[in-house]
């Protein structure tokens, strides 16, 4: 499945605000390093993400660049 939270890792400053507001605890600060020396945030549990967009809303650096929601499955 495609990622529901798209992160621009270069913009992230690992402030952790998104991790703190995520109601489903699907985000974490990664072990990676960007060119500024910050550890960018990472969506580690795409399946349980509910695309609420809280992370996007609180992100001060527009590093959460897009939130996507799966189309409802037609029965």
């Amino acid at each position: 499945m495609e990622k529901k939270v798209l992160v621009n890792e270069e913009r992230c400053k690992s402030c952790g605000l998104c991790v703190a507001v995520c109601p489903k605890h699907v985000l974490k600060i990664s072990e990676k390093l960007n060119s500024k020396g910050y550890h960018p945030v990472e969506l580690f549990d795409n399946e349980n993400c509910i695309s609420c967009g809280f992370c996007y809303l609180i992100c001060p650096d527009a590093s959460i660049i897009e939130i996507r929601r799966p189309e409802p499955v037609k029965r």
């Binding site: 527009a62 959460i64 897009e66 939130i67 929601r69 189309e71």
Partner: peptide, 12 residues
């Protein structure tokens, strides 16, 4: 997938 939020264009 439907976009719910997207970084606005005027943000450089």
């Amino acid at each position: 997938m439907k976009t719910v939020y997207k970084k606005p264009e005027p943000i450089t």
